[in-house]
Design a protein around this nucleic acid. Structure first.
Lengths: 342, 342
DNA sequence: CCGTTTTTGGCAATCGATTGCAACCGGACA
DNA sequence: TGTCCGGTTGCAATCGATTGCCAAAAACGG
């Protein structure tokens, strides 16, 4: 425990030069200021001493922690680990480390964890917790580079990486219509969430383009949960027995809808077809395997990280960038032609 | 962008005292050295200025980053997010931040990410990647507090938090025997993993205690994956058609076993009962719902964090502590009495 | 061969908080 | 009245890396 780690000074002593020169030699951005031969000697000495720069020291001096706050609702929601991996992998390659926090979808918790990330002096934020109308996001984005993923705000004034909801929902509707369904319902996500909102809009447009009615066939849940969807779907199916198919705003809601159908003796897919959204892990082995819209989770995270890194690089306010990735339909067992043509 | 954040000096100026005194006043460990009245004034001033200490500065001085390296195989494996949440929640309350990395079960990647965590000057490690015989763990644990979760090493010389595998597997075996099964097989985990090893051992002991044979009824996979289990289980079922039940070493392997059974026209649970281990999310909605041994994921993480924090506190080498949590059996639809009594 | 430009590298200040040491204060005690 | 003491607070060094500024050295031009 005499000496914990070797420092710049140790390397300098070994090479016989000043620590400042070592610093310059080791930093790619400044190494052109020092004689290539010296750089080589420094590199060798640093390697031989196992020198690793102390990020707290450099961070103190440069006021950059090389750390990114990543705020997600809940890591145990299988939608997010893939995105987090995408973020981690991309940030790591650029020398940044993500600091991960959960909010449990509670705005108060969110305010708290964001504050603690600021206390940690993160250099930027990736947020998966945007609400359509977000309280402190504006203030945050004035002080830090911010990228939203998955969800966005109403105003669209922040850089974001999302999927093309319109396209995804259209794929699901087209698929069901192609199977012969006409009476198709939508179980929408919470109204405060952009994904819920946009998918509902996308649903009614897609239906309209097929000349189909959505009257009394659209409902929204309070929370992205199986239970919430079960109740909502049950009420809808009871009120509208003609419904033969449900487009759910995400996989959890689809599971809830299937469960509601089961409780009403509507077996899926014979009596009721259901589609999900996201294609979370294991959706291929539930009963029945879920037809769903797959979003490229890893890519969303990776794109978001790239976007944030570019914001970090050119401080210049380039125009706000929105990246939209394209989802694809995964056809499985939860959809089939309706029992009787309508 | 004139002034990024307020510092100790700002607070000191406002109160009219020396920064050192402010530091002492704000630090609970040293505030007894300062006049209570002064402490109060300092607190008020700090609050009014929104003062937040700079962790890089204090970290530089104290050589502690208040940061913990958390090394897991793969965040997208649903077993881990729960543990990570447990770790995060507990560490956060103590003012520590986890730095999360994945290894994809690759020892080389692990060496690399551990090195990068050391570069970040983490104060300790929580590792979910132990192999029975682990290369650099000893060296690491000499320099840092280390706690293992989920898996342990052969030698058992490192603090750890695990579940009682013996008990968990016994629950599964007892359950199947109680249903009337006699020809019970085991699909074991990879041999390099302590969980795989211990569960296999537990299985043969539990069977023995019932007076049942395990001869030619135990196999092990190469990797914790559905595919690997599918092949292994299929071979086993073909070679030993008398088998009526399978105890899998984890849920993924159980899913693989069920899939293998299906491909051999052995419907689960009528012709083949299967149990899993871990009770990952969604195991209640797969087809059929999986009977499995639930491990308290959040608690494992929380216990590990607590254990590490206590190691961080008393540097004194207290005896190596092993925490064992008790799993419970969750009975669902994948197990039933055998078709014909054996 | 001398004056000038360009390289190269040293010096020292700086980032913000912590902490050993010393100084100061008022009061107690002899 | 002088000494001592405990309680407070200030001073200054320190952690390790970065960087503006300047000086020495080298290269260059005429």
């Amino acid at each position: 425990m005499t000496r914990v780690a070797t420092t710049l000074k140790d390397v300098a002593k070994l090479v016989g030069i000043h620590p400042a020169t070592v610093s310059r030699a080791l930093n790619p951005r400044t190494s052109h200021l020092v004689n290539p031969a010296t750089v080589a000697r420094v590199r060798k000495a640093a390697a031989s001493l196992n020198y690793v720069p102390n990020p707290m020291a450099s961070g103190l001096r440069t006021a950059r922690s090389h750390t990114i706050g990543v705020v997600i609702p809940d890591l145990t929601n299988p939608l997010f680990p893939g995105m987090v991996r995408g973020i981690q992998d991309t940030l790591a390659r650029a020398g940044y480390t993500p600091l991960l926090v959960n909010t449990d979808n509670d705005p108060e918790v969110e305010a708290h964890v964001v504050a603690s990330l600021r206390a940690r002096r993160v250099d930027g934020f990736i947020l998966a917790t945007a609400r359509r109308d977000h309280p402190f996001l504006l203030e945050l984005s004035e002080k830090f580079p911010v990228v939203l993923i998955n969800r966005v705000t109403e105003s669209g004034q922040f850089p974001s990486v999302t999927t093309d909801e319109m396209h995804g929902i259209r794929l699901a509707v087209d698929h069901l219509v192609g199977l012969g369904h006409r009476a198709i319902a939508h179980i929408g996500g919470p109204a405060w969430s952009s994904t819920g909102h946009e998918r509902a809009q996308a649903f009614s447009r897609a239906m309209k383009s097929h000349g189909l009615s959505t009257a009394r066939r659209m409902a929204a849940v309070d929370a992205w949960s199986v239970e919430s969807a079960r109740e909502t779907a049950r009420a809808l199916l009871v009120a509208q027995p003609a419904i033969t198919a449900i487009v759910a705003a995400n996989d959890l809601l689809a599971l809830g809808a299937m469960s509601a159908g089961r409780s009403l003796k509507l077996r899926c897919p014979r009596a009721l077809s259901v589609t999900g959204y996201n294609d979370m892990p294991f959706m291929d082995i539930v009963d029945p395997p879920l037809t769903t819209v797959r979003v490229p989770q890893h890519d969303i995270g990776a794109e978001a990280a790239r976007l944030l890194l570019s914001l970090l690089r050119d401080d210049a306010q380039s125009p706000v960038k929105h990246v939209r990735l394209t989802p694809e339909l995964i056809e499985r067992g939860s959809t089939a032609p309706p029992l009787r043509g309508d």
